[in-house]
Amino acid sequence: MSALAAVLRRELRLAWRSPGDSLNVLLFFVLTVVLFPFGVGPAAEILERIAVGVIWVMALLACLLSLDRLFRDEYEDGGLDLLILSPAPLELLVLGKILAHWLTTALPLIVVSPLLGLLLQMPPHAFPVLALSLLLGTPTLSLIGAIGAGLTLGARRGGVLIALLILPLYIPILVFGVAAVDAAAQGLSAQPHLLLLGGLLALFLPIAPVATAAALRQALH
């Protein structure tokens, strides 16, 4: 556990010292969402209809964009070898890195998401459910994404490849995340969708660190 805390502390300190990386992802998220009214026109009813989907898809792409760097720098400078050689289980260290990734990239997106909902004419009573669905869904995005980041280490054209591997696996999270907010916007209960999102998180919480650790081991074999 102290190893997990140490990795987490180190990652957060690194992110704090170069905040540009997290900020860029946040800016990407905001800018791409703001592009949509230019694409489909400013009519309120159209924007209201597509708001949830747009915010969720863009959050997913922003998460994907930031994954490339999750292990790459340490793979190239040799830091990853030290993590593998350390006596602490690699799965735990990987979990620490995933948690740090979520805290530094997904959490800012969740914080600004109600603001974007406002811009896209979402009914305000759906904002809490939007934030909650992102809060339950984005950790799973980071967990699955870490598997892809580990598998593509050292690959040619790794950045494009990771999208091909990960996006099909993201579909269930997108489906339940959007369904939760849609239900709330129509005045129905969002609970079943949120429970399913939580179930996915509970499923991938143990699977992803194990698969990512296996991927890292074979990458540095």
Partner: peptide, 17 residues
């Protein structure tokens, strides 16, 4: 090997998808 790990992750995912 990398593709094999992906295939196993995919198998867990196919029913969920």
């Amino acid at each position: 090997k990398a593709a094999a790990i992906l295939a196993l992750v995919g198998v867990v995912n196919v029913p969920i998808i």
